[in-house]
Design a protein around this nucleic acid. Sequence first.
DNA 1: ATTAAATAGTACTAGAATAGTCCTCAATTA
DNA 2: TAATTGAGGACTATTCTAGTACTATTTAAT
Lengths: 154, 154
Amino acid sequence: MLRLSKLTDYATVILSFMARDNTHVHAAMEIAAITGIALPTVSKILKVLVNAKVLISTRGAKGGYALARAPEKITVAEVISALEGPIALTECSISLQGCEQAAGCEIRGNWSLINQTIHNALESVTLADMIRPVRSQAPAWEKEILIPVASLYR
Amino acid sequence: MLRLSKLTDYATVILSFMARDNTHVHAAMEIAAITGIALPTVSKILKVLVNAKVLISTRGAKGGYALARAPEKITVAEVISALEGPIALTECSISLQGCEQAAGCEIRGNWSLINQTIHNALESVTLADMIRPVRSQAPAWEKEILIPVASLYR
DNA sequence: ATTAAATAGTACTAGAATAGTCCTCAATTA
DNA sequence: TAATTGAGGACTATTCTAGTACTATTTAAT
């Protein structure tokens, strides 16, 4: 599996709840209760999302968390990079200093193309799309994302 | 990072070497020597790729491994699933029995759409594409898609 | 036939990464 | 000033990955 960490998965669950009820701030405890995710874990995720400027927080009594922007303006790519760092499939696509297998590895450039394609895909899906019922959304991005990478070469 | 395991990374290195020299079988030891990956590790990967029908093996003296098909017929998606299992970002996209967060989770269908998109991208890149030099292809795609590379390192 | 060269299969170990928890400090409101 | 809520960091246990080792099986050459 092309693994996404559990925390990232939780994050999307949390965020989609918040997107659906975006009228007031939500305390960590409330979110934990509703999503069924343990409080300390919810708390940890929320903090990360605040640092990534996906959420804004209010301290003190009656405080809580709210989306920093409208759901349409928050992309899945953003959420993923907040929790997992840069979106890339291989180490060498991130650190440009090259891998040890340099001898047998002339495919770095090609990986980065693939990475960009995937990133592009994730960037065009927003929180708003995520909370939309499945049926009605296909058209919106099918036009935009289906990039046949191979065709770029031929 | 949207992690791909090291083994998968190695696999692409190994396969791209084999695609470049596709005239005869290669023994595991030869591949290890050339790629610089430890023999037991190479061996392990080759076995997996044989099971996935990406490679074919010949036992005995003068035996070795060869691509099961032409490089154009072997996709990156295949290689990745061979080593990591089904290509999907989240658990619940694979096992349809649903997750425990069922209450707060109505986004499964949307994940699967994203997964599908990514899968398509990976499916359209073949081994033949991977061994093509990077330079010659840059112009082609630069015209066709606009990708905010900087966002990768946000 | 016998020996050497190779893959097949499986089990095991060490290390790293992840998930999850807990505790103390800071801020806000009533 | 007391109660409520987030911020930040440290810590632990568990899971996963990478890598290794060993034994069995198959084939080719002599």
